[in-house]
Design a protein around this nucleic acid. Structure first.
Lengths: 303, 303
DNA sequence: ATGCGTGATAGATAACACCTATGAAATTAT
DNA sequence: ATAATTTCATAGGTGTTATCTATCACGCAT
């Protein structure tokens, strides 16, 4: 049962703990232990660094894990294909999404649940580069990211929506009646922005740069939710994707103002590996996006 | 032991015969039979059409085979990676090559044997489209084809050499002293050309078209060797890649003449899947090509 | 009919994947 | 220091199963 052993191995890699890994695999801890040992015996190479507890993997082990994940990914895809042939798609979609796409993910999962009630969905938020690596290494099935990246060669993609940037401000008299604002003007306001060197932050910086500004950010955070809270409770303003606010009035005490000169627009879409045949989970997600776009639910979602 | 069962399945698919498949897998025929049956049981789906002999596969079976090949491809890659870690690369390279590249393949296999004596090589000649499909379906590890095809997106490639076309003529006084000839002139000679709608034939047709000619082919064959024989024994002329003849005097009674106006040149290179990490067999072939190009053996090979 | 090829079936055996119970070493708490 | 806890390995037993050899059943050709 080599497949099982590979599953044990990746479980140990994820949990870094034999007991929890066994739990995740629904076997007893000794079974998992001996499974790993059998694997090392058959592959003729030590994999786990063992002192009286889990100490990590050997270099060979790390490589084996990468391959094991690929093997299992294909295995799971085969099983999914089979379940579909038998009637209903079963299994798990591993979705890698950029945080900016967070508000629309529920639309996807809702449709997924409707069309394929037996499919679970694992959502992991990650950066664009990480998403692409995940697709290449088969640790995720599909990604949701910006499409215009150069990194997407060798991958297939499908547009979901255009992301527009807005300025989020407190709903006070200071900003009353303002329906649009230029980046230049915004630069002089008390800003809180996303941190780091992410693609998302770069878009904002580029837009300011195009308006000849290089504003400093009073508060820097890696969480959009946290930025919104800063607008609510600290009187700062921030730049967020429109879709975070356009679902009518889910946040109170804040308002979104259109940012112009320039009007920044980014394509957000589904990305998946261009293998042939297409992995069944990826295909399922693609048809869901198509259904979503055709149904008009997207526009409805954000008014 | 699902892996074994998948191997049984693809063996049956290849051999279309249970006994030979068992032989190939080094197990007895009943073992293989029950292995297949176990697989059908576990996957809950009939795979093989059974009357008192092998009658083909069900539709589900055909799909399962595709996935099985992908799974096993990753499995074999993992095993190869492991053997490399343990000292020497072991396994089998599945090479898909276009027939035109036939003369240089021995150079590759010779270097492969030198660098990796434990690696076997399976050479299958096939068309460009077939090669690309094979790479996508993981039925081959690397391909040798023309590089300028549009179909190569999502694949990695490395130039091996430039293919030039020559006119092959009988070594008689009729063609004595002629060292180059135009496509226009060649069009009026008794031609024998490759058949079909292959990429290789299209290049020849395009060259003639560029010279304003659309010659008819007295003899049409899908074998370059056969075309050469027609030049030798039927007094016809043909268009062949230079490299078929430039290895000094392996064919007697024929001569190659340079074809000009236009001078046709096609890049021939190694192609492989752009997965990450790169499959070990593909990596081995890549480094062999690099070594070959650096060593100057290629130029030496054809004078 | 007779013989041959092909795959399924029967019965026996050895391997092994799994379990529970327990042990040994290291870390943490008292 | 001593005890408790955590963590993984080991021991022994059990049921499953992958494999083998030997044989059978069916189709097909001579």
């Amino acid at each position: 049962m080599l497949f099982r052993q590979l599953q044990y191995l990746v479980a140990v890699a994820r949990e870094e703990h034999f007991g929890r890994a066994a739990l995740r695999c629904n076997v007893s801890q000794p079974s998992l232990s001996s499974g790993i040992k059998q694997l090392e015996l058959r592959l003729q190479v030590p994999i786990v660094l063992r002192g009286r507890r889990f100490l990590g993997f050997t270099n060979e082990g790390k490589q084996i894990i990468e391959w094991a994940e690929r093997v299992l990914s294909q295995h799971d895809a085969m099983m999914a294909e089979l379940s579909k042939m038998r009637g209903s798609l079963e299994g798990r979609v591993r979705l890698g999404a950029m945080p900016n796409s967070s508000p629309i993910i529920p639309l996807l999962s809702r449709l997924l649940r409707k069309n394929h009630p037996d499919v679970e969905i694992d959502i992991h938020f990650m950066g664009i580069e990480e998403t692409i690596i995940g697709l290449q290494k088969y640790t995720i099935d599909v990604g949701v990211t910006y499409l215009q990246s150069e990194l997407l060669s060798g991958l297939k993609s499908l547009l979901i929506y255009d992301e527009r940037l807005s300025l989020l401000v407190p709903d006070t008299e200071e900003y009353e009646g303002i329906s649009s604002i230029t980046w230049k003007e915004a630069a002089s306001l008390p800003l809180s922005l996303l941190s780091g060197s992410t693609h998302e932050r770069k878009i904002v910086d580029d837009a300011f740069a195009e308006a000849g500004e290089k504003p400093k950010s009073y508060v820097t955070s890696d969480s959009i939710m946290n930025l919104i809270y800063h607008v609510m409770f600290a009187g700062l303003v921030t730049v967020i994707p429109q879709n975070f606010l356009l679902m009518s009035g889910k946040f109170s005490g804040v308002r979104a103002i259109k940012l112009v000169e320039p009007e920044v627009s980014q394509q957000v879409g589904l990305v998946w590996s261009s293998t042939e045949p297409i992995m069944p989970m990826a295909r399922a997600m693609v048809s869901i996006i198509k259904e979503l776009k055709a149904s008009g639910k997207l526009e409805e979602h954000w008014g």
